[in-house]
């Protein structure tokens, strides 16, 4: 199942995900109208600013087992197995903030929310935009992110991409062409891969 994948190194700190998230969880559903609503809708993704001003989109990880769920006194926090999403039932939430102490990522907020509890403060967190998913839309934060910090994709593909990124960082030794340190077959194999890659780049070799 596709999920929102976070790549913090790509976050430019524009906070459009926060605005889009708040709008997606507002009464009107549109940003222009949402900013005039009461209570003001709050974002469920939070962009932090690092020591050098760099951005970090902090979003619920939907852990399994989820520490917030184990710590919830009235049993208001539950897992929707179909969507692999940790959700809060606002009608059961007593706003005791036990989950604040449980969440290792600090992603739960406590306020009135136009969507779930206009009358009283409750714990509010990312719901993976299940209401949008039901309409065939992707989560608002990933939809609006333009820098690729938040993407909506299969976790397997994201992991493969990450493995490739790390592998490329270690490609330097292929260029060193050391001899005598290891079996000659490995060196030959690497040189073949390198040459065929260069041919492919120049357009003369097999793709």
């Amino acid at each position: 199942m596709r999920q929102v994948v976070v790549r913090p190194e790509r976050c430019v700190g524009c906070m459009q995900c926060m605005a889009a998230c708040a709008a997606a969880h507002s009464q009107s559903g549109a940003l222009a109208a949402a900013i005039r609503e009461y209570p003001l809708p709050g974002p469920r993704v939070h962009v932090g600013s690092g020591r050098y001003g760099e951005g970090f989109p902090n979003r619920c990880r939907h852990c399994d087992p989820a520490p917030c769920m184990t710590a919830c006194l009235p049993g208001a926090i539950y897992r929707d197995g179909n969507w692999d999403t940790v959700l809060i039932d606002p009608s059961r939430c007593i706003n005791c903030a036990s989950c604040a102490m449980a969440c290792p990522f600090g992603v739960i907020r406590y306020h009135r929310d136009p969507w779930v509890s206009p009358g009283r403060a409750v714990a509010v967190k990312c719901d993976n935009c299940l209401h949008r998913r039901a309409k065939g839309l992707i989560p608002a934060c990933a939809e609006v992110c333009k820098s690729g910090a938040l993407t909506f994709q299969e976790p397997d593909r994201a992991m493969k991409r990450r493995t490739d990124e790390i592998s490329r960082r270690t490609s330097g030794y292929v260029d060193q062409e050391r001899s005598g340190e290891e079996a000659p077959g490995f060196m030959l194999l690497r040189q073949l891969k390198k040459r065929s890659g260069q041919l492919a780049e120049s357009g003369r070799g097999p793709r």
């Binding site: 903030a97 989950c99 604040a100 102490m101 969440c103 990522f105 600090g106 739960i108 907020r109 406590y110």
Partner: peptide, 8 residues
């Protein structure tokens, strides 16, 4: 106290 869990 929202980030108390991070400290914990």
């Amino acid at each position: 106290i929202e980030h108390a869990g991070v400290l914990r």
